[in-house]
Structures are given as C-alpha cells and as structure tokens.
Amino acid sequence: MADTSRAPAERAAPVIAVRGATKHYGAVRAVDGVDLEVAPGELFGLIGRNGAGKSTLFKMMLGLIPASAGDIRIDGSPVTGSGFRAVRRKIGYLPENVVLYDNLTGLETLEFFARLKGAPASECGPALDRVGLAHAARRRVREYSKGMRQRLGFAQALLGRPRILFLDEPTTGLDPEAIREFYVILRGLKADGVTMILTSHILAEIQERVDRLAIMAAGKIQAVGTVQELREQMDLPLWFRVRLAHEDFHHVRAVLGGLPILAIEAREDHVAVECQRESKMVVMQALASLGDKVLDLHVHEPSLEDVFFGFSD
C-alpha cells in the first residue's frame, strides 16, 4: 500500500499536524488515535457520517476541546500552548450549523468579528459582497434564512485574510447555485495558497474538488489519500457493461472464459462483466478483440460513495 499519509510531492512542513489525537467522553471514544497531516496550500476533505467524530476533531484542532491524548500542531504551534493566539489570527473557522447574533445586522456581525480578529473594518463590506449578502448588510440576522446565515458565517471566516481555513459542513443549507459559488471562492483562496480543511457527508460534492481526503468513522481515520488512491486501496471490483450486436452471450462467455473475471451475466439489453481492478486491461483487450460484435462499452468504476460505505461499514 502506498504511503498516502503524506501529501504527494509536498515536503514542506505540514500546516496541520495531528498525531495520535484522542478524545474520550467517559467510555466513548469520540476521536480515537487520529493521525493527519495537511500540507501548505492543500484543500483537504474530511468525510464521515454524522457522529463519526469530525466536528470533535475540528474543535480539537482549533484548541476548543482539550485532547485526552496526542499532539496537535497548527502552523507548528501546539494548539494548547500560549503562543496559539498568534496562530488564531491566521485561522478562519466556520463551525457546523454556525450560530451568530440575531440582534445584530449582517454588517455589525462582521464588524464585531473583524475587531476581534484585528482585521480592518473596511474588509466587512467587501466580505459581504463576496458571499452575495451585500443587499442584506443592514438587515438583522434574525431575518436571515438558513442559507444566508451560512454565507454570513463563511464571510466571517474570511475576515482578516486567514492562511488556514477550517470549514465544518460549509455547504449545509446552501442551494446548488450557492454551493457552486462557494467552491469558486475556495478555488480563488487555493490559488492564493490558503490551506483548507473541510468536512462533508455529501461525497459527490467534494470528491472532485479536494486534493486529498480522509474518511472518518467511529472516531478513527479509516483511509487517507486522493480519490484514486482510495479506490485502489479499497480494491473494489469494477463492472463492464457490454452491449452486443446479436445474441452472442455464449460467444462472449467463451472469449472471457479463461480470464480472471469475477462474474458474467446476461441482462436485458447488455452483458455485465465484473472483475478486479488489476484485470481491467486484460478484460478490456479481450472485449476489444470481439470487434464489431460489441456495439457499446461502459466501465463502471466504484464511486467514492462505494469506497466510503465500504470503509464505514
């Protein structure tokens, strides 16, 4: 198995370095011996179902919850150390289900957090504009929809030009259009070299957008790597969906007979062939040798969803 705990081609000191992080609540191990490294400028995804321990791990990485055991460093500083205040100035955090102050307007909310972060008040207006809330700047947060609150929370996280962003379920409550805009902003931040870690349980949404991801279940990191690496680690079988010109099922079976395939069966209008990843090319060549007997050919790679549920179960 490839060593995927390190970012590919990155040798710089990790911005986020977690070693053996553990958090128990009584007998419950919410986070259980987690090792994780995120390289500078990386966009890292943390995937897991609700209750997998993602948010607890996030809070530990931000120094909000003390670890029962282990060592967590952000930008080289231990999160429990007195020097962490300086690191906090570089951090933007969007909590899961962000709660802001109902009695403040959107602009006042940002001005409050900007003062705490030492960011100039002049950043607040543009920040609202960036998340599409300029029109609601002077409305009280009480009147905001869930999606608007989420966007305001994101604007808050962007104040002070953070170098490290922690985004916990950042797209909750956003409509598809807003989700797209959100990832456009993330791409811009990535181009500026911002290191980002985000959690999600919507796999389809992040699998094409993150550099690497970790799958978390029952407080443990089950696997880390790129989407491709995870698929390979899982060694899930893949499927060929072959449409034939004639009722040539027996012929196909005969051609593939000697090959390392797992299953072959005739379906309504096609033949389904299942094989291991390492046999993929052999099977493909055999199918190609059938020439014009094959009308169409689809390869079904396991989705990240399959990988995820494979690990989590």
Binding site: R88, I91, P95, Y101
Partner: peptide, 14 residues
Amino acid sequence: ERGSLDLLLSMPIT
C-alpha cells in the same frame, strides 16, 4: 447553549 461559544473561542482571545 446557543452554540455561539465555539466561534467566539476560536477568535484570537483568551
């Protein structure tokens, strides 16, 4: 209880 404490504590304050 409201859930706003974590965000406050993530700020550069003690």
